[in-house]
Amino acid sequence: MSFTDSQLERYSRNIILKEVGVRGQKKLLAGRVLIIGAGGLGAPAAMYLAAAGVGTIGLADADVVDLSNLQRQIIHATSDVGAPKVISAKETIEALNPEVTVNTLQGLVTSENIMTLIEGYDFVIDGTDNFPAKFLINDACVIGAKAFSHAGIIRFQGQLITYIPGQGPCYRCLFPSPPPPDAVPTCRQAGVIGAMAGVIGSLQAMEAIKYLCGIGTPLTSNLLTYNALTMEFRKIKVAKRSTCQVCGHNPTIVKPLDYEIAACDLKSKPA
């Protein structure tokens, strides 16, 4: 393929970079990234990937836009309140970069549909806000040999790690099972600063871009944590666990499984 003049102009800042260049931009345009959760993390991730020219972006989210989302979910606008998040996000992406193909799933990602859903993508971004979904995405990506970025945010803290098949630990190596329901408060109960979602979601987009272009060092084998109050980033070396239930020597989890989601997490509005 060759670039049009408008593509050369739109992506000039990417192409100028030695590490990206013409070839990297072509990889981005051919790239396919699935974002599960069009919320705080998914919003900046989707927008930066679309702006960078990632050719196909998949969005999966069951929720509709709520007024309380707008404090951090910058892909949605006030006029989108009440609209399905995937539709609102798709419209924002298409306005930003009409060259991007956006696939949407307006519904829950479950053990039943996740393997089919991730199949056609190069990279998956976990932008979800609950542990059952995070374990589901991890297990599916390990089983399906798919690279993905895990992230989580709460209050003034965030963390992320990248999983690439055959490289380093998976999320379950670090956290063998979800915490008991209500042991960890959700964002709704605990609060979070919107810019935190911006920082961590943008880092997830960066990991996806690096992976697609084949440049740099991915955040595998390291959990990056960010504390906004002290303004400290920490990179914690983490190892693959041979007894991991999904990526270890004798895996007991060979197909994705659903954990029960706390009832309050399923509602789009607080009770």
Partner: peptide, 13 residues
């Protein structure tokens, strides 16, 4: 600029 350099990069590629 910067399309000047971008066009040269594309041609060299």
């Amino acid at each position: 600029c910067p399309v000047t350099f971008v066009k040269v990069k594309v041609a060299l590629d």
